[in-house]
Structures are given as C-alpha cells and as structure tokens.
C-alpha cells in the first residue's frame, strides 16, 4: 500500500513523560515513526493522541525522556530548524478573517522567508505545487471562510505542503468531514506518502486507519498498547483492550486489510 520504509526512524520518542500543568497525560512512552511510512495513531478520546503529536513536533516539552528528530534531541533545535524537517496541521489552526486561499497557503512558507527576503520564486513554486497537489488551484483567490469543510481541509493541507518538509503530522484531518471528503483527504495523504513523504495522522475511524496506514500506533490512557502493521494491531483482542468494545474483525472485501465491525449493547447482551 505505502512506500517502503527505508533508513532509520526520522522521528521517535524515547521514554517520554508528558504532562499539562500538573496533570500527567503519558508516562514513559516510547515509539518510532518509520521513514516513508503512513503512520496512523488511534485510540479513544482523551487518550493523549493530540498531546503526543504536540510533543513529537516540539510544541510541548516532555517532563522526562526525549523526542529524537533525525538523530537530534528536538528540545535542542530552534523552531526554524524543526520547521524545516516537519510540518504539523493542528486541530486548533484558524484562518484569519478575510484571508484568501493563496495567502493562507503562502503562510506555510514562513520558515523559508527572511526579514528582507519575504517572497521568492521558490515560494511561488512551492505554493503553486501545493495548490496543484491538493487540487485547489482553482480556489486560489477564494476566501477561506467561504469554502466548504472538505475544500478548507485540502487548503490547510496545502499550507503544510508548501512548507516542503519530509515529515507531515496531522491531528484528526478527517474529523467533521462527510464520508466522501474523508476518503478524498485520505487518498490525498496516500498520494503524498507514495511521493515519498512520511505521514503521521491521528485518525478516529479504525477502518480508515486499517485501509490507508502502513503502520498503526494504538494508544489508551497515555500508553502505547500496540504498534505495527494494520494486520498486527487491528485484531479483536487489541481493539477490545484499547477501546473497551467488542468487535468482529474481518477481511475488508475491497482491500483484504482488517476491517472492524463493532458490536452494540444489544448484540453483547444477546450473545
């Protein structure tokens, strides 16, 4: 499905402990993002997925342990150095009022710009390429607030693409989209992955993770319960352990990857 993982892990967490103020979110957590992988992070609400993403991108400093980006402790890197290697689409991103698509995508070029070099041909090329890849060239002059949810998400992804980083992390990129637009975004991420970028996405839908990801990291209450290929992680026992939900796991008739059918309470009580 995905580009073959090559080389050492460009991004990994080593025994990291994460907390907000005094509340501990995760303790002694270790994980690896394989080079060239499409890694999906799954887990129940409030299990620490977004917090982990913030730590992996250097936005949140671990209380203990290290995040290693291309062999270096991320805490020792300046924001600009980090931004040359990885891009993040957080859930909290907001479009300034009245901004056009092209302007928003151009904001992704920040790390390549200087005080007295605010715009260059490379910037122009990167923005055009990002718009082309996300099929948003026709939207360039539209205002972001006038777009549909699906278009808006493509434009945000274009902004991260314009940053031109080998690693891209996305926090729930498909949430709030209808099913057609969810597939649209996942297909786009798959294409980017095939073109050589390493993709890390927090996903809610297990079937999407199983179908698109080359690697899955399953979390519960700040712990990594399982990590590996979809066939290793998406199994009845692991899904039950992670979500506390009984499921049937069978082969997806379209791709042969695992597919999860949840039991509801009526099934559980009758069996």
């Amino acid at each position: 499905m995905s580009a073959n993982p090559t080389g050492p892990a460009p991004l990994r967490g080593e025994n990291i402990t994460l907390s907000y103020e005094k509340r501990q979110i995760a303790e002694n957590l270790s994980l690896e993002i394989a080079d060239g992988s499409f890694t999906a992070i799954i887990g129940p609400n409030a299990c620490g997925k977004s917090t982990l993403l913030r730590a992996l991108t250097g936005l949140l400093s671990p209380v203990a342990g290290q995040v290693i980006l291309e062999g270096k402790d991320i805490a020792s890197l300046a924001p600009r150095q980090i931004a040359q290697r990885l891009g993040l689409l957080p859930q909290t991103a907001t479009a300034p009022e009245g901004i056009t698509v092209a302007e928003l995508v151009a904001r992704g070029r920040y790390v390549h710009q200087r005080l007295l070099r605010q715009w260059s041909s490379e910037d122009r090329k990167a923005v055009d390429e990002a718009l082309r890849l996300t099929n948003a060239t026709d939207l360039a002059d539209r205002r972001v607030e006038h777009l549909s949810g699906g278009q808006r998400q493509r434009v945000w992804i274009a902004m991260v693409l314009a940053q031109e980083t080998p690693l891209i992390l996305l926090d729930e990129p498909t949430t709030y989209l209808d099913i057609a637009h969810q597939m649209d975004v996942l297909d786009l991420l798959h294409e980017l992955n095939m073109a050589g970028r390493t993709i890390v996405a927090v996903l809610h839908d297990l079937n999407h993770a199983a179908r698109y990801a080359s690697h899955i990291i399953a979390m519960r209450a700040g712990e990594v319960i399982a990590a590996g290929a979809p066939s290793e992680v998406i199994t009845g026992p692991i899904v039950s352990q992670v979500f506390g939900l009984d499921t049937e796991v069978m082969a997806d008739p379209v791709t042969g990857n695992p597919m999860v059918i949840p039991h509801d309470r009526r099934v559980r009580t009758s069996t």
Binding site: G87, L89, P90, A93
Partner: peptide
C-alpha cells in the same frame, strides 16, 4: 493559532 504558527517555524 499558536500551534500552527510555531510549527511553521
């Protein structure tokens, strides 16, 4: 947004 700004450098 703070996170988006910081992650662009």
């Amino acid at each position: 947004g703070d996170d988006a700004a910081a992650s662009t450098g």
